[in-house]
Design a protein around this nucleic acid. Structure first.
Lengths: 312, 312
DNA sequence: TTCAAAATAAATAAAATTGAATGAAACTTT
DNA sequence: AAAGTTTCATTCAATTTTATTTATTTTGAA
């Protein structure tokens, strides 16, 4: 036999009042219901919790200790239940995103979302496109953001932006004249590792124009590539948003390649069976708007977040 | 509608396993029972807590937050229930004692009892004999220790020692010759306040021998009386155990009064309807033995406590 | 005695649980 | 790849179990 929450509730009320009859009235129950509930509680514990003194029920030493343990927990449990019944904006959203998005778009989205909905927690997982897709299929994450293509019949995809790949260098001389991509093939190239979406899309795009690219270094992170770039005269191809700051500040330069228009989609994905809680819907709505704006206008996400909050 | 512990238990198991069928087997229930319980939980909360993905139930963003809140509490509640079902030595005993006992006997009893039963908490209330008796009648305390007489048909009394009152001074000259009590009537007397058991018993005892006692100071605490005594040449009548130390160290002296044999009982009292939990019984047994020994032999209580623990 | 409150017992209402039927996806077999 | 099989969650009506009520008895105090 196990103690129930009801028994605790009744027990706590009897402790407070000391009279079964009062508690029965308060709780809209019969006096015998209270009596039997207390008796059952005492049965389960194996010994009385009240001394019956002058028609009053007074906690005994066992009951007192039991009450002290159980009362705060009961209250907390009630609070939690109330919170979840009444607050829509409570939950933990697990987000997954592929490398470029994780680094350059997610931080400000998450940060601004959390300031709009302080009761919602967010966990962020990184992975390449395939890994993120698998997490969606398994239910390990609620929503994913990836670059490129996703396959899987259970996955609902939505294009929420375009990712432009550009050729970049730190060597100003290289960026002065407009050239065709094959003319750059013998320059020293740094690329992301095989398997990376950025690399695959780039190589696929140029495969008919360039025979052999002079790849002299492969690195796992965009930031590593940027730092190396600064020290040597070499080239790379990266997502435009990831080098936005450096282009503005003049640390890096875009190489004006003729006929070079290498684009891929940013996708927001979720499982087709996903229950669309208001929490989830709001996050989706929020991300969609914010993502589009950020990509198009590179505008401060935090300011936008405030506007969005009002419209929801 | 309210969430029940059962629903939480099932919910937590489903989270862990992900399959209703497994949980049903583990819990010896049909899978429809599990299914309906989860559904009811979701009903109460007003929204789903699981996404049904490929026959599996995967926590969604709401369920995840709910789980995180509820799981540790559920575990704690189970632990508490288990503790109370299985551990006899758990509780809170409220002890009341009158002034002399509180100061000179209870500390070592409580201290040694608590080292023998670390899971039992003790609260100690002070009061004069009447107040302690009323607390017993009302159920405010579980057990009381008083000096003197107690009336009340609901109160079970047990004599556990004798308290001897003696006449005491710090003035060695006064303690040199044996006298009758009436010969001391004009000395300067310090007594406890009216209502104090020590005072009443003393005055009652001498009322036929002494007309008017020269009471020049009344103080509420034995310790205050002792300090005053040291500075002036005056007398008081106190419980022997309360001046034991001072007599030994020579700070105070017993005045050898002829024909003076003023005694009263130490009583242990409890309500007749008191449920005798094993906790209570042990405390009573413990106190009885310890009290007798302490009064008779003035022996170190802590050492004795260890012996007693073994015999229980 | 009478009064007020708790305990008990039998009756009943409410709930939890079951078992059979249904449906949907995943896995086999052809 | 279509048809059959298995697995598992869901649904619904039936049933068991539990909670609660009504009526009655007991208890202690005024």
């Amino acid at each position: 036999m196990k103690i129930t929450l009801r028994q605790m509730e009744i027990f706590i009320n009897v402790v407070a009042s000391g009279h079964l009859t009062n508690v029965a009235k308060e709780m809209n129950l019969s006096q015998s219901a209270i009596s039997m509930s207390i008796k059952e509680l005492e049965n389960i514990l194996g010994r009385p919790v009240f001394d019956r003194i002058n028609k009053k029920l007074v906690l005994n030493e066992v009951g007192r200790a039991f009450y002290k343990e159980i009362e705060p927990i009961y209250r907390k449990l009630s609070d939690i239940e109330f919170e979840f019944k009444n607050s829509e904006n409570k939950g933990i959203i697990r987000v997954g995103a592929s490398t470029t998005i994780v680094d350059y778009l997610m931080p400000s989205i998450i940060c601004s979302y959390m300031s709009a909905y302080p009761d919602v927690k967010i966990t962020l997982k990184e992975g390449n496109t395939k890994e993120i897709a698998r997490m969606i299929e398994e239910g390990t994450i609620d929503i994913g953001f990836v670059e490129g293509f996703v396959q899987g019949s259970d996955i609902v995809k939505e294009k929420i932006g375009v990712d432009e790949l550009i050729v970049v260098t730190a060597d100003k001389a290289l960026s002065q004249k407009s050239v065709f991509i094959d003319e750059l093939a013998n320059e020293r190239w740094i690329l992301r590792e095989p398997g990376s979406g950025t690399r695959e899309v780039f190589l696929d795009y140029i495969k008919e124009k360039v025979d052999a690219l002079n790849i002299f270094l492969e690195l796992g992170h965009t930031e590593s590539i940027k730092s190396i770039l600064n020290n040597r005269s070499c080239l790379t191809c990266l997502s435009k948003i990831s080098v936005e700051d450096e282009l503005k500040s003049g640390k890096l330069f875009q190489v004006p390649v003729k006929n070079f228009d290498c684009k891929r989609d940013f996708l927001m994905i979720h499982h087709k069976d996903k229950y669309h809680s208001s929490l989830f819907e709001k996050f989706v709505f929020f991300s969609r708007k914010l993502m589009v704006k950020m990509i198009e206008e590179q505008q401060c996400a935090i300011d936008l977040a405030k506007e969005l909050k009002k419209s929801l």
